[in-house]
């Protein structure tokens, strides 16, 4: 057993929408600085699991510890302010304010003394500088995604949850996102959980694979073990 305290650990977690149980008995732990991919088919429960961690949608039963503390009774905003930051799949850029204002909003999640300067964020994403004064509704899908990630970083996350960050993006933009994420991991000390359907993107950004199928976590190992068992892909990811 590893001696490092996990930054996130969940045990026996169930999540419900209405009467239906979407996530069943999930257990998972992530150590500080770890990069983990959460893979699964459409509807397997990737987004639901991520939202469950923040109490941002489904009704959740089970144990969630973040940074050694039981957070299962905390409201969403309080969890964000602890450094558990979700960049949702639909990006949710505020359309009527500028890019700079959107990014600045992310600062509300930052813990006292952990603030990230906006210069730091613009250094990480040089693409953003010329867009600063543009309104949210004037962005392309790829630009929106970058703004969403930059906004998440402003909250000085200790665990950053990215829900399908390259969904619908052109291959060139996906490559850029890989580089962005590598840069983030170099410059900031954070753990990463990326929900993805894009295998090659996930592989390039992470070093561990968690497979989720019909709401159950069915595999949790390194990419090497994943590659050594090609039937996993067939059984849990093939459409």
């Amino acid at each position: 057993m590893d001696s490092i305290e996990p930054i996130l650990s969940i045990r026996g977690l169930d999540a419900f929408y209405g009467g239906s149980r979407i996530i069943q008995n999930a257990s998972l732990s992530i150590r500080p600085g770890e990069k983990v991919a959460l893979l699964g088919r459409n509807g397997a429960g990737k987004s639901t699991l991520m939202k469950s961690l923040l109490n941002a949608g489904p009704r959740v039963v089970g144990d969630i510890h973040f940074d050694g503390k039981d957070i299962s009774a905390l409201a969403t905003d309080a969890r964000s302010r602890m450094g558990l930051v979700l960049v949702p799949e639909d990006r949710r850029i505020y359309s009527n304010i500028t890019v700079a204002e959107n990014i600045e909003l992310g600062r509300h999640a930052a813990r006292a003394g952990a603030a990230v300067s906006s210069d730091e964020v613009y250094d990480l994403f040089p693409l953003l500088a010329p867009l600063r004064q543009r309104a949210g509704y004037q962005l392309s899908g790829g630009q929106q995604q970058i703004v969403a990630v930059a906004r998440g970083l402003m909250g000085a996350p200790r665990l950053l949850l990215l829900d399908e960050p390259v969904e619908g993006l052109a291959p060139v933009v996906v490559d850029e996102m890989v580089q962005h994420i590598a840069r983030i991991c170099e410059t900031r000390e954070l753990a990463l959980l990326i929900a993805e359907q894009n295998l090659s993107f996930a592989r390039r950004c992470t070093d561990r694979v968690v497979l989720i199928d019909s709401g159950r976590i069915v595999f949790d190992e390194t990419w090497e073990v994943f590659d050594a068992n090609p039937e996993l892909k067939e059984r849990h990811l093939a459409v």
Partner: peptide, 21 residues
């Protein structure tokens, strides 16, 4: 400004750490 942000999308606002309540 925060009121406008919350009015436009309260769900995202709480994810950004705003105390929507």
């Amino acid at each position: 400004r925060l009121i406008r942000v919350v009015a436009a999308d309260p769900w995202m606002a709480q994810l950004l750490g705003l105390n929507v309540k």
